[in-house]
């Protein structure tokens, strides 16, 4: 029997963005991954910048290179990413420990899923994120 050629139809990274019925949890999922990667990138950058001290280069001191407005704004973006990642992370820990997903039910159309059960938690965490962003933004402006 001859070998049948099959076409690999895996979505890859595109699968993060497409391929499903778009819901709030999927946006949260994508943003959680992007902010996670962003924070990881920041930590690596942070190590590079601070290790320059060994060469006697202080990029953040006084009116140094890192005190330009673009970097001040980038610092706020890092804070925003951290606030979102932390708040959404708490939601994920609670959900993954089986809280806020409800008990199995008889599936009767129109179907209600665990997504409906945990939605209030998602909303609360996003409000909390917004509060943190507002406080952080206010603190950055008056600095």
């Amino acid at each position: 029997m001859s070998q049948i050629n099959r076409y690999d139809n895996r979505l890859g990274i595109w699968g993060w963005l497409g391929g499903g019925r778009w819901g709030a949890e999927r946006y949260a999922y994508i943003l959680h991954r992007i902010t996670g990667l962003g924070i990881l990138f920041y930590f690596l950058l942070h190590i590079v910048v601070t290790s320059l001290r060994a060469k006697g280069i202080y990029l953040w001191a006084g009116h140094g290179f890192l005190h330009q407005p673009i970097f001040e704004f980038a610092e706020y973006v890092v804070f925003a990413a951290f606030a979102y990642h932390a708040c959404n992370g708490i939601r994920l820990v609670l959900v993954e420990l089986g809280f806020a997903v409800g008990k199995p039910i008889e599936p009767v159309y129109p179907y209600k899923t665990s997504l409906n059960v945990q939605r209030p938690l998602l909303v609360c965490m996003m409000i909390l994120t917004a509060v943190f962003l507002a406080i952080g933004g206010y603190a950055a402006l008056i600095e």
């Binding site: 019925r21 949890e25 999927r26 179907y111």
Partner: peptide
Amino acid sequence: YAGECSRACPKG
């Protein structure tokens, strides 16, 4: 927990 599996499931 992107939740897409539950949204896509045709049988609930």
